[in-house]
C-alpha cells in the first residue's frame, strides 16, 4: 500500500518535471521567435518602403521645399561622410593610442584599470548628453553650429569601442613576437607600431569599423552641433546636413513626400551599416584574424 502511493507520487512528480521541461523549452523557442520577428519585420518593411522610393534623384539632388515632389538627400550623404571623416580623424588615432597604452605599457596597473573604467563610462554616456556637452564646449564659444563640432561629438563616441578592441587584440599577440623584434635591436616604439600593431591590425580595423557603424546612425549628438542644412555645404565651419538627422526631420514632418524620402534614407543608412557589420563578422570569424591571433 505504502509503496503504491510512493510510486504514484513519483509518477506524478515525473509528469510535473516532464511538463516543466517541455514548457521551458517551448518558452525559450517562443521567445527567440518573438525576438527575431520584429527584426525581420523591420528589415522587410524597410526594404519594401525604401526600395520603392529610392531612385537616382535621391543620390544626386538636394532637398526640395515642401510641396514640390522629387528631391533627394545628396547633401546629407556627403555631409554624413564629412562628419564621419572628421570623427574618425579624432577618434581613430586617440582610440588606438589609448589601446596601445593599456595593452603595452599599463598592463594590469592601477592606472590602466582606471583608464579602462573611464572608457566604459564614456561608452555609456547617453548620446544626447554628448550632444549638449559638445554644444557647450564648441558651439557656444564659437556662437554658431558647425560640422567641426558634429565631427568632434562623433569622434568622442568612437573612442571607447576602438580603445577596448585595440587592447584586446594587442593582448592576443604573443610575447615571443615582441621579443624577437627587440632582440634584433628594433627600438620599442618601432616594434609596437610595425610589429605588434601590424600583427593585430585585422582586429584593430574590425574595432574601428564597429565604432564607425555605431556612430554612423547617431542622430542625437548632431542635433545641436552639426544642426543640419538644406543646401550643399562641405565647409567644416558651417552647419552641415547628415543622413540620420535628415531622416529624423522628415519622419516627424506631416508630408507624405517627406516620409517617402525618410524611408529611402533609412534604407541607405541600414545598408551601409549592415554591410560593415557583416564584413566585420566575416573577418573576425573566418578571415585573417585567426591567423593573427
Amino acid at each position: 500500500m505504502m509503496a503504491n502511493t510512493q510510486y504514484k507520487a513519483g509518477k506524478a512528480n515525473h509528469w510535473r518535471r516532464f511538463l516543466a521541461n517541455h514548457l521551458a523549452s517551448g518558452l525559450a523557442v517562443a521567445s527567440t521567435i518573438i525576438v527575431v520577428a520584429p527584426l525581420v519585420a523591420i528589415l522587410l518593411y524597410l526594404i519594401y518602403k525604401g526600395a520603392s522610393s529610392l531612385n537616382l534623384n535621391f543620390f544626386t539632388q538636394i532637398p526640395r521645399p515642401v510641396g514640390e515632389s522629387g528631391g533627394g538627400m545628396a547633401n546629407a550623404i556627403v555631409g554624413s561622410a564629412v562628419l564621419l571623416g572628421l570623427g574618425s580623424l579624432l577618434g581613430v588615432p586617440l582610440g588606438i593610442a589609448a589601446g596601445i597604452y593599456l595593452a603595452e605599457f599599463g598592463r594590469g596597473g592601477r592606472l590602466a584599470n582606471f583608464v579602462r573604467f573611464t572608457a566604459d563610462v564614456l561608452n555609456g554616456v547617453p548620446s544626447i548628453v554628448m550632444g549638449i556637452s559638445v554644444y557647450a564646449l564648441i558651439v557656444l564659444p564659437q556662437k554658431h553650429f558647425s560640422a567641426l563640432s558634429g565631427g568632434v561629438a562623433l569622434g568622442i563616441m568612437m573612442i571607447p569601442t576602438i580603445t577596448r578592441t585595440t587592447e584586446e587584440m594587442l593582448l592576443m599577440v604573443p610575447n615571443s613576437i615582441r621579443e624577437a623584434a627587440l632582440g634584433l635591436g628594433v627600438p620599442n616604439w618601432r616594434s609596437v607600431l610595425s610589429i605588434t600593431l601590424k600583427t593585430a591590425s585585422p582586429g584593430v580595423i574590425t574595432g574601428c569599423m564597429l565604432a564607425f557603424a555605431r556612430v554612423a546612425g547617431e542622430t542625437a549628438p548632431l542635433l545641436f552641433t552639426a544642426f543640419g542644412n538644406n543646401f550643399w555645404s562641405t565647409s567644416v565651419n558651417e552647419p552641415i546636413a547628415a543622413l540620420p538627422l535628415q531622416i529624423y526631420v522628415y519622419a516627424i514632418s506631416p508630408y507624405d513626400e517627406w516620409h517617402r524620402l525618410a524611408w529611402a534614407g533609412a534604407l541607405v543608412l541600414i545598408v551601409l551599416i549592415v554591410v560593415s557589420v557583416a564584413l566585420v563578422r566575416y573577418v573576425t570569424t573566418r578571415g585573417v584574424l585567426k591567423g593573427a591571433s
Binding site: 520584429p38 523591420i42 557603424a213 555605431r214 546612425g217 542622430t219 543608412l269 551599416i273
Partner: peptide, 8 residues
C-alpha cells in the same frame, strides 16, 4: 538588432 540606428 543592436546595429540598427535609433532613428530607424
Amino acid at each position: 538588432l543592436a546595429a540598427i540606428p535609433s532613428v530607424v
